[in-house]
């Protein structure tokens, strides 16, 4: 059994719902290759009519921020409420706001 990987690689799964605009991360799974990962995602994550589109990506292809960087990355935005567009008086005749 030389040359055989002991375990299939891990994939992250993103599903877009019927009325969803974007793909949402729903979980992860193992698969032998990219195409089988799509099939597995269909079987594991869309059994209850959740999805119309699936993305899969090898987990090791994702570059993530480190928890150690949490403060330098995210703390500076914590006190800048003026970045939310909530300081405007919205006229009554502007719909969908």
């Amino acid at each position: 059994m030389t040359g055989v990987r002991a375990e299939w690689p891990l994939y992250e799964v993103f599903v877009r719902g019927k009325r969803g605009l974007n793909h949402v991360h729903v979980g992860s799974l193992h698969a032998p290759d990219d195409q089988m990962a799509v099939r597995h995602a269909r079987d594991v994550y869309t059994r209850r009519n959740e999805g119309v589109s699936i993305w899969v990506v090898r987990s090791d292809a994702i570059t993530a921020s480190s928890p150690d960087e949490k403060d330098p990355l995210f703390a500076p935005s914590g006190d800048k409420v003026y970045r939310h567009p909530t300081f405007y008086d919205i006229p009554h005749d502007v719909p969908h706001m």
Partner: peptide, 23 residues
Amino acid sequence: MTIHTHQPGEHESAYDGLLVNDA
């Protein structure tokens, strides 16, 4: 003053956003 805040429990399950009216 209104600040948009994240409602507790708004995204408890990854499926919340997917199921919509098919829940």
